[in-house]
Nucleic acid binder design. Structure first.
Lengths: 113, 113
DNA sequence: GGCAATATGTCGCCAGACGACATATAGGAG
DNA sequence: CTCCTATATGTCGTCTGGCGACATATTGCC
Protein backbone atom coordinates (compact mmCIF):
# COMPACT_ATOMS: atom_id res chain seq x y z
CA UNK A 1 0.00 0.00 0.00
CA UNK A 2 2.51 2.57 1.18
CA UNK A 3 4.83 2.66 -1.80
CA UNK A 4 7.28 4.93 0.03
CA UNK A 5 7.91 2.32 2.70
CA UNK A 6 9.50 0.01 0.14
CA UNK A 7 12.26 2.40 -0.83
CA UNK A 8 15.10 2.33 -1.55
CA UNK A 9 14.92 -0.29 -4.24
CA UNK A 10 17.96 -2.48 -4.72
CA UNK A 11 19.89 -1.78 -7.89
CA UNK A 12 18.77 -5.04 -9.49
CA UNK A 13 15.10 -4.31 -8.76
CA UNK A 14 15.35 -0.74 -9.99
CA UNK A 15 16.88 -1.76 -13.31
CA UNK A 16 14.37 -4.55 -13.85
CA UNK A 17 11.45 -2.16 -13.33
CA UNK A 18 13.15 0.42 -15.54
CA UNK A 19 13.60 -2.19 -18.24
CA UNK A 20 9.88 -3.03 -18.14
CA UNK A 21 8.77 0.62 -18.20
CA UNK A 22 8.50 1.04 -22.01
CA UNK A 23 7.01 -2.39 -22.76
CA UNK A 24 6.69 -5.94 -21.39
CA UNK A 25 9.65 -8.28 -21.74
CA UNK A 26 10.60 -11.84 -20.89
CA UNK A 27 13.42 -12.70 -18.48
CA UNK A 28 16.28 -13.06 -20.88
CA UNK A 29 15.35 -9.84 -22.70
CA UNK A 30 15.37 -7.99 -19.35
CA UNK A 31 18.86 -9.31 -18.67
CA UNK A 32 20.16 -8.02 -22.01
CA UNK A 33 18.32 -4.72 -21.71
CA UNK A 34 19.73 -4.04 -18.25
CA UNK A 35 23.23 -4.69 -19.57
CA UNK A 36 22.71 -2.18 -22.38
CA UNK A 37 21.01 0.36 -20.08
CA UNK A 38 23.88 0.24 -17.60
CA UNK A 39 26.55 0.34 -20.31
CA UNK A 40 27.62 -3.24 -19.55
CA UNK A 41 28.30 -2.40 -15.90
CA UNK A 42 25.48 -4.60 -14.60
CA UNK A 43 25.29 -8.20 -15.67
CA UNK A 44 22.42 -9.77 -13.76
CA UNK A 45 23.09 -13.35 -12.75
CA UNK A 46 20.11 -15.60 -13.34
CA UNK A 47 19.90 -16.14 -9.60
CA UNK A 48 19.42 -12.41 -9.08
CA UNK A 49 17.04 -12.03 -12.01
CA UNK A 50 14.61 -14.85 -11.35
CA UNK A 51 14.77 -14.34 -7.61
CA UNK A 52 13.86 -10.69 -8.08
CA UNK A 53 11.08 -11.50 -10.58
CA UNK A 54 9.55 -13.93 -8.10
CA UNK A 55 9.53 -11.28 -5.36
CA UNK A 56 8.17 -8.65 -7.74
CA UNK A 57 5.29 -10.92 -8.73
CA UNK A 58 4.47 -11.58 -5.06
CA UNK A 59 4.45 -7.84 -4.37
CA UNK A 60 2.34 -7.31 -7.49
CA UNK A 61 4.67 -4.73 -8.93
CA UNK A 62 4.80 -6.81 -12.11
CA UNK A 63 2.44 -9.38 -13.63
CA UNK A 64 2.60 -12.21 -16.15
CA UNK A 65 1.43 -11.41 -19.67
CA UNK A 66 1.36 -13.17 -23.02
CA UNK A 67 4.66 -12.72 -24.78
CA UNK A 68 4.00 -10.45 -27.78
CA UNK A 69 6.99 -11.92 -29.63
CA UNK A 70 5.73 -15.49 -29.27
CA UNK A 71 4.35 -16.89 -32.55
CA UNK A 72 2.16 -19.74 -31.42
CA UNK A 73 4.88 -22.36 -31.23
CA UNK A 74 5.42 -24.99 -28.58
CA UNK A 75 7.91 -23.09 -26.50
CA UNK A 76 6.09 -20.61 -24.30
CA UNK A 77 8.10 -17.76 -22.94
CA UNK A 78 7.06 -15.90 -19.82
CA UNK A 79 6.71 -12.18 -20.29
CA UNK A 80 6.31 -9.65 -17.52
CA UNK A 81 4.67 -6.22 -17.43
CA UNK A 82 4.68 -3.40 -14.88
CA UNK A 83 1.50 -3.02 -12.85
CA UNK A 84 0.22 0.43 -11.97
CA UNK A 85 1.55 -0.18 -8.48
CA UNK A 86 4.95 -1.04 -9.92
CA UNK A 87 4.99 2.12 -11.99
CA UNK A 88 4.19 4.21 -8.93
CA UNK A 89 7.04 2.64 -7.00
CA UNK A 90 9.43 3.24 -9.90
CA UNK A 91 8.42 6.89 -10.13
CA UNK A 92 8.81 7.30 -6.37
CA UNK A 93 12.27 5.76 -6.50
CA UNK A 94 13.43 7.98 -9.37
CA UNK A 95 12.07 10.97 -7.49
CA UNK A 96 14.00 9.92 -4.38
CA UNK A 97 17.17 9.60 -6.46
CA UNK A 98 16.72 13.08 -7.92
CA UNK A 99 16.41 14.60 -4.46
CA UNK A 100 19.49 12.75 -3.39
CA UNK A 101 21.54 14.04 -6.32
CA UNK A 102 20.41 17.58 -5.55
CA UNK A 103 21.38 17.16 -1.90
CA UNK A 104 24.79 15.89 -2.99
CA UNK A 105 25.27 18.99 -5.16
CA UNK A 106 24.55 21.24 -2.20
CA UNK A 107 27.30 19.43 -0.33
CA UNK A 108 29.71 20.42 -3.07
CA UNK A 109 30.05 16.91 -4.32
CA UNK A 110 30.26 17.66 -8.01
CA UNK A 111 30.62 14.92 -10.54
CA UNK A 112 33.68 14.79 -12.76
CA UNK A 113 31.96 12.92 -15.56
CA UNK B 1 42.05 0.75 -6.23
CA UNK B 2 39.26 0.49 -8.75
CA UNK B 3 36.69 2.77 -7.19
CA UNK B 4 34.09 1.86 -9.78
CA UNK B 5 34.12 -1.78 -8.73
CA UNK B 6 32.67 -0.85 -5.32
CA UNK B 7 29.51 0.71 -6.67
CA UNK B 8 26.67 0.91 -6.01
CA UNK B 9 26.99 2.10 -2.44
CA UNK B 10 24.28 1.07 -0.01
CA UNK B 11 22.02 3.89 1.07
CA UNK B 12 23.51 3.99 4.56
CA UNK B 13 27.07 4.18 3.22
CA UNK B 14 26.17 6.89 0.71
CA UNK B 15 24.57 9.11 3.32
CA UNK B 16 27.44 8.65 5.76
CA UNK B 17 29.98 9.72 3.13
CA UNK B 18 27.73 12.59 2.10
CA UNK B 19 27.49 13.70 5.71
CA UNK B 20 31.28 13.77 6.01
CA UNK B 21 31.80 15.64 2.74
CA UNK B 22 31.69 19.22 4.14
CA UNK B 23 33.65 18.53 7.36
CA UNK B 24 34.64 15.72 9.76
CA UNK B 25 32.07 14.51 12.27
CA UNK B 26 31.78 12.00 15.05
CA UNK B 27 29.33 9.08 14.97
CA UNK B 28 26.37 10.61 16.71
CA UNK B 29 26.62 13.82 14.67
CA UNK B 30 26.57 11.72 11.48
CA UNK B 31 23.38 10.03 12.66
CA UNK B 32 21.65 13.36 13.25
CA UNK B 33 22.96 14.88 10.04
CA UNK B 34 21.74 11.95 7.95
CA UNK B 35 18.29 12.30 9.49
CA UNK B 36 18.18 15.99 8.57
CA UNK B 37 19.65 15.39 5.10
CA UNK B 38 17.05 12.75 4.31
CA UNK B 39 14.19 14.78 5.76
CA UNK B 40 13.75 12.31 8.63
CA UNK B 41 13.25 9.40 6.23
CA UNK B 42 16.45 7.64 7.25
CA UNK B 43 17.11 6.97 10.91
CA UNK B 44 20.34 5.00 11.11
CA UNK B 45 20.32 2.40 13.85
CA UNK B 46 23.58 2.29 15.77
CA UNK B 47 24.17 -1.20 14.44
CA UNK B 48 24.07 0.13 10.89
CA UNK B 49 26.13 3.21 11.70
CA UNK B 50 29.04 1.69 13.59
CA UNK B 51 29.07 -1.39 11.38
CA UNK B 52 29.36 0.84 8.33
CA UNK B 53 32.03 3.05 9.94
CA UNK B 54 34.11 -0.03 10.73
CA UNK B 55 33.92 -1.20 7.11
CA UNK B 56 34.66 2.29 5.81
CA UNK B 57 37.78 2.52 7.97
CA UNK B 58 38.97 -0.87 6.72
CA UNK B 59 38.45 0.24 3.12
CA UNK B 60 40.23 3.52 3.93
CA UNK B 61 37.40 5.64 2.59
CA UNK B 62 37.37 7.44 5.93
CA UNK B 63 39.99 7.92 8.66
CA UNK B 64 40.07 8.83 12.34
CA UNK B 65 40.84 12.45 13.18
CA UNK B 66 40.94 14.57 16.30
CA UNK B 67 37.50 15.85 17.09
CA UNK B 68 37.57 19.60 16.43
CA UNK B 69 34.77 20.13 18.97
CA UNK B 70 36.67 18.34 21.75
CA UNK B 71 38.11 20.72 24.28
CA UNK B 72 40.80 18.71 25.97
CA UNK B 73 38.55 16.99 28.51
CA UNK B 74 38.61 13.39 29.63
CA UNK B 75 35.98 12.09 27.24
CA UNK B 76 37.47 11.56 23.84
CA UNK B 77 35.09 11.41 20.95
CA UNK B 78 36.02 9.69 17.73
CA UNK B 79 35.71 11.87 14.69
CA UNK B 80 35.90 10.66 11.11
CA UNK B 81 36.97 12.40 7.91
CA UNK B 82 36.71 11.46 4.26
CA UNK B 83 39.95 10.32 2.66
CA UNK B 84 40.74 11.33 -0.93
CA UNK B 85 39.82 7.79 -1.90
CA UNK B 86 36.48 8.17 -0.13
CA UNK B 87 35.78 11.44 -1.88
CA UNK B 88 36.49 9.83 -5.25
CA UNK B 89 34.09 7.01 -4.50
CA UNK B 90 31.42 9.48 -3.41
CA UNK B 91 31.81 11.50 -6.61
CA UNK B 92 31.69 8.34 -8.70
CA UNK B 93 28.50 7.22 -6.94
CA UNK B 94 26.77 10.58 -7.41
CA UNK B 95 27.81 10.52 -11.05
CA UNK B 96 26.35 7.01 -11.42
CA UNK B 97 23.10 8.21 -9.85
CA UNK B 98 22.87 11.14 -12.25
CA UNK B 99 23.28 8.88 -15.25
CA UNK B 100 20.63 6.60 -13.85
CA UNK B 101 18.14 9.43 -13.40
CA UNK B 102 18.79 10.57 -16.96
CA UNK B 103 18.25 7.03 -18.24
CA UNK B 104 14.98 6.86 -16.31
CA UNK B 105 13.81 10.10 -17.94
CA UNK B 106 14.48 8.65 -21.38
CA UNK B 107 12.25 5.74 -20.42
CA UNK B 108 9.46 8.20 -19.77
CA UNK B 109 9.52 7.63 -16.06
CA UNK B 110 8.81 11.16 -14.94
CA UNK B 111 8.62 12.05 -11.30
CA UNK B 112 5.43 13.42 -9.83
CA UNK B 113 6.88 14.57 -6.52
C1' DG C 1 18.06 12.21 42.20
C1' DG C 2 16.11 11.00 37.95
C1' DC C 3 15.43 11.43 33.10
C1' DA C 4 16.59 12.71 28.37
C1' DA C 5 20.07 13.63 25.13
C1' DT C 6 24.62 12.60 23.83
C1' DA C 7 27.84 9.00 22.56
C1' DT C 8 29.79 4.33 21.29
C1' DG C 9 29.47 -0.31 20.78
C1' DT C 10 28.00 -5.81 20.11
C1' DC C 11 24.98 -9.61 18.66
C1' DG C 12 21.75 -12.16 16.01
C1' DC C 13 18.31 -12.21 12.42
C1' DC C 14 16.97 -11.83 7.78
C1' DA C 15 16.63 -9.97 2.97
C1' DG C 16 18.73 -10.04 -1.15
C1' DA C 17 22.74 -10.22 -4.64
C1' DC C 18 25.52 -13.42 -6.75
C1' DG C 19 28.11 -17.44 -8.47
C1' DA C 20 27.61 -22.22 -9.51
C1' DC C 21 25.05 -25.58 -11.24
C1' DA C 22 21.15 -27.73 -13.99
C1' DT C 23 18.27 -28.11 -18.13
C1' DA C 24 16.31 -27.44 -22.76
C1' DT C 25 15.89 -25.65 -27.72
C1' DA C 26 17.50 -23.46 -32.08
C1' DG C 27 20.83 -22.43 -35.46
C1' DG C 28 25.25 -22.11 -37.65
C1' DA C 29 30.13 -23.81 -38.30
C1' DG C 30 32.96 -27.53 -39.27
C1' DC D 1 26.01 -35.20 -37.71
C1' DT D 2 28.28 -33.10 -34.06
C1' DC D 3 29.84 -29.28 -31.44
C1' DC D 4 29.35 -24.75 -29.85
C1' DT D 5 26.96 -20.55 -28.88
C1' DA D 6 22.97 -17.88 -27.96
C1' DT D 7 18.51 -18.05 -26.13
C1' DA D 8 15.72 -19.17 -22.14
C1' DT D 9 14.35 -20.51 -17.27
C1' DG D 10 15.24 -22.12 -12.98
C1' DT D 11 17.43 -23.82 -7.93
C1' DC D 12 20.72 -23.72 -4.12
C1' DG D 13 24.16 -22.18 -0.90
C1' DT D 14 26.99 -18.42 0.57
C1' DC D 15 28.05 -13.91 2.08
C1' DT D 16 27.26 -8.93 2.75
C1' DG D 17 25.01 -5.65 5.06
C1' DG D 18 20.87 -3.24 7.27
C1' DC D 19 18.39 -3.25 11.36
C1' DG D 20 16.35 -3.95 15.93
C1' DA D 21 17.60 -5.16 20.55
C1' DC D 22 20.56 -4.79 24.08
C1' DA D 23 24.52 -2.79 26.83
C1' DT D 24 27.04 1.13 28.90
C1' DA D 25 28.84 5.74 30.15
C1' DT D 26 28.61 10.95 30.49
C1' DT D 27 26.44 15.53 30.67
C1' DG D 28 23.02 18.76 31.82
C1' DC D 29 18.47 20.16 33.08
C1' DC D 30 14.38 19.97 36.12
Amino acid sequence: MDTLANLPLTEATLFILLSLAPEPKHGYAIMKDVQALSEERIVLSTGTLYGALKRLLEQRWIRRVNDPSANGDARERKAYALTEQGRRVLRAEVSRLQKLVKAARLRAVEDQG
